[in-house]
């Protein structure tokens, strides 16, 4: 029975190991326990404290360096593109430009000599110009300040843009219904239709060696013929090879425009190129009536 006792004796009993009478009674009280959710929370917190300390500094350093490297790379690319564009001034339009511009795909070979390039009309009003990253450099610039490699890159970029955006000839202008071509001509005639459609394939072709390109369906025989043919007249520019790209461009023209273009080449003194283009024209449109002055070009 717990009742009034001497306080000093009472505290001595309490400070003993057993805790005395009141200590024994206390131990019979309900023994509260923390709920399980607290156990989980505290053990989880202890585990997190051990396992997830502060993030190591090294990781943050790597992120910073990576970001800086990315910026430097981007700046380098931008500088390079800007430099190329600066060395590639746009070609001034000429009087003949309006005639050719709307449908001419502005692809120009970089192998042409300075003299022929200077006389060539520029397709300044072509809608492709706005999409092209830079105008083709003049030959003097190509041989001078701009390296040949840089010019190639610009040319490739232009080609890729033009490949994506160039309309099919059939959409640009309704050509007269072609007569049934001979098998080889039919194969060649398919080339312009497939050209803008299959951009990926053409990009791969552009990356191939120039020899491979020149053995393309359109220009294959023409180049071989040109090698055997002597230059017509002393006024002809010596060795001004037309690239298959230019010939393909011609194939995209309507027959009337194509012939007008050939005449223009003759007026510009580019007879060899005109002859190549005419040969291709005659293969593509074998039934088309050719004027006498153009027939002379074949001789």
């Amino acid at each position: 029975m717990i009742g009034p006792r001497d306080p000093d004796r009472d505290i001595d009993d309490l400070l003993e190991d057993g805790g005395g009478e009141i200590g024994n009674l206390y131990r019979r009280l309900p023994r509260y326990e923390p709920p399980r959710r607290l156990d989980r929370a505290i053990l989880g917190e202890a585990a997190r404290a051990v396992h997830s300390g502060k993030p190591p500094r090294r990781q943050r350093w790597i992120v910073g360096v990576g970001s800086a490297a990315g910026l430097v790379l981007a700046a380098g690319i931008a500088w390079r593109i800007g430099n190329d564009a600066m060395h590639s001034p746009p070609v001034a339009p000429t009087e003949s430009a309006p005639v050719m511009a709307p449908r001419v795909v502005p692809v120009e070979p970089i192998t042409e000599s300075a003299r022929t390039r200077r006389d060539e009309p520029a397709p300044a009003s072509s809608p492709m110009d706005s999409a092209a990253p830079a105008a083709p450099p003049p030959p003097s610039a190509v041989t001078g300040a701009v390296s040949k490699r840089a010019a190639n890159e610009v040319d490739k970029a232009r080609k890729s843009v033009e490949l994506k955006a160039a309309p099919k000839p059939a959409l640009a202008q309704e050509p007269p219904p072609p007569p049934p071509p001979e098998p080889q001509a039919a194969r060649q005639a398919e080339a312009p239709a497939a050209f803008p459609a299959d951009a990926k394939e053409e990009q791969a072709k552009d990356k191939a060696a120039s020899a491979e390109r020149e053995t393309g369906a359109a220009a294959d025989g023409l180049f071989r013929h040109r090698a055997q043919q002597p230059a017509a007249g002393g006024a002809l520019p010596q060795s001004t090879p037309s690239s298959s790209v230019e010939l393909r461009r011609d194939m995209q023209l309507a027959p009337e425009e194509w012939l007008a273009h050939i005449h223009q080449l003759i007026r510009q003194g580019r007879r060899q190129q005109a002859a190549e283009s005419l040969r291709l024209f005659m293969r593509t449109h074998p039934d088309w009536e050719i004027s006498d002055d153009l027939r002379e070009l074949q001789r």
Binding site: G3, L14, I22
Partner: peptide
């Protein structure tokens, strides 16, 4: 404090 605590507890039983 312990002494006072024990006294109060005993008082409750009394």
């Amino acid at each position: 404090r312990l002494r006072y605590a024990l006294a109060r507890i005993r008082a409750r039983f009394a």
